[in-house]
C-alpha cells in the first residue's frame, strides 16, 4: 500500500483535475483573505497597542467607500466561484448518453453491484479505463453514500428511489470507495475497491463471468411474475403496453405528468397506486420486497429500459391476471 504522504488524493478520473483546479482557486482566495486579515489584525494590535490608560483615540465612525469595497469585492469573487462551481456540478451530475450502466445497491453493511451482462460483485467494482461509467444507486434499508475520493464523486443511495453518479476513470489501478452516509454499526466497514482495467482486460473479465444479461433475466421475471398477462397489446386494455416507454413523459390521473425514469418504474412496481397513468384503472397489485427484491427490481428495470416496439414477450400459458384487492 502506498503510504507516502500526499496532500491531495490521487487524480484518477477526468473530473478529478477539474475539481482540484476549482479547489486551488478557492484555496488561493481563502489564503489571501486569511493572511490579509491576520496581517491587519496583528499589525493594528501591535502598532496601536495601549500605552497609557488616559489616551483616548480620535474617533472614526466609518467609511462608505470602504464598506462598499469590502462588500462588492468579496461578492464579485463569490460570484466567480459560484458560476465556476455550478458549471462543474452540471458536468458531475449529468452522465453522457453512451455511459456504461452499473446498478449499485447499498444495504447494511455491504455494496451489491450488478453489471448489464449479469455479472455480480460485492464490495468490488470492475470498470474499464477511458469510458464513462454511470452508477445507478439505491438502498435496501437506510441511507448510504457511494464515494470514490480518487474520482472526486459521491452520491447518496436512497431507499425507494434511484440516484446517479458517473465518472470516466483515466488510469488502470485500484481505488478505494467508501460509504459516506452514516448507516449504523459497521458504517466504517462498508467500503471496497474500484478496479479500473484496460478495456481489453475488462472485456476478458466480463466474458469470464458472463451470465444471462440483466435485461434477459428481467424478461424472465416479466413472464414469471405474470406482468405479461396484462401488459401486452392483446390483453384487451387491462394495462398499458410498456414498449418504448423509458424516458418518455407519462400523463397521470389528475393532470400531472412524470418522466418514466428508473425511479418511476420502480415506484410503479412497488406501489402502483401512487402514480396511475391517465386513462387506466388502479388494478395492479403492489409487488413488495418479498415478491420483487431490489436485485430483481434492477433486472425488471433493465428489461423495460430496452423494450422496443413489438418486443413484449408472448404469454406462455393461460393464467389468471394478478389483481389488486380494490376496496369496495
Amino acid at each position: 500500500m502506498d503510504t507516502k504522504f500526499a496532500l491531495l488524493p490521487e487524480q484518477a478520473s477526468t473530473m478529478a483535475p477539474r475539481v482540484d483546479t476549482m479547489f486551488w482557486f478557492i484555496t488561493a482566495v481563502a489564503a489571501f483573505f486569511t493572511f490579509l486579515i491576520a496581517a491587519l489584525l496583528l499589525s493594528f494590535a501591535i502598532r496601536y497597542r495601549r500605552r497609557t490608560e488616559d489616551y483616548f483615540p480620535k474617533p472614526v465612525v466609518g467609511s462608505l467607500p470602504l464598506e462598499l469595497s469590502w462588500t462588492f469585492v468579496p461578492l464579485a469573487l463569490a460570484l466567480v466561484m459560484f458560476f465556476w462551481g455550478a458549471s462543474l456540478y452540471f458536468d458531475i451530475v449529468r452522465p453522457p448518453d453512451n455511459a456504461l450502466e452499473v446498478y449499485v445497491t447499498g444495504k447494511q453493511w455491504m455494496w451489491h453491484l450488478q453489471h448489464p451482462g449479469g455479472q455480480r460483485e460485492i464490495n468490488l467494482l470492475h470498470v474499464p479505463a477511458g469510458r464513462a461509467v454511470k452508477l445507478i444507486l439505491t438502498s435496501e434499508d437506510v441511507l448510504h453514500d457511494f464515494f470514490i475520493p480518487a474520482f472526486r464523486v459521491k452520491t447518496d443511495a436512497i431507499p425507494g428511489r434511484y440516484t446517479y453518479i458517473w465518472f470516466n476513470a483515466t488510469k488502470p489501478g485500484t481505488y478505494r470507495f467508501y460509504c459516506a452516509m452514516y448507516c449504523g454499526t459497521d458504517h466504517s466497514r462498508m467500503t471496497g475497491y474500484v478496479e479500473v482495467m484496460e478495456p481489453s482486460e475488462y472485456e476478458r473479465w466480463l466474458n469470464e463471468r458472463a451470465d444471462l444479461s440483466l435485461a434477459l433475466q428481467g424478461r424472465q421475471l416479466f413472464q414469471k411474475l405474470n406482468c405479461v398477462v396484462c401488459h401486452q397489446p392483446r390483453a384487451g386494455g387491462r394495462a398499458p403496453v410498456l414498449e418504448n416507454l423509458f424516458g418518455t413523459t407519462v400523463p397521470l390521473e389528475g393532470g400531472q405528468t412524470v418522466v418514466a425514469d428508473e425511479s418511476y418504474l420502480r415506484e410503479s412496481i412497488r406501489t402502483p397506486a401512487a402514480k396511475v397513468r391517465a386513462g387506466w384503472r388502479p388494478i395492479m397489485p403492489a409487488f413488495t420486497k418479498d415478491k420483487v427484491s431490489e436485485e430483481d427490481m434492477v433486472k425488471l428495470i433493465a428489461f423495460l429500459k430496452g423494450l422496443r416496439q413489438g418486443q413484449t414477450p408472448p404469454r406462455v400459458e393461460e393464467s389468471e391476471p394478478p389483481e389488486a384487492k380494490v376496496k369496495k
Partner: peptide
Amino acid sequence: GLFTIGGLTGLYLGNLGTDVHLTH
C-alpha cells in the same frame, strides 16, 4: 482568526463543484 478560516472554508462547501467531493 478562527471565524475567518471557518467562514472561508465554507466557500468550498457552498461550491457545487468541490462540495460533491467534500461533503460527508
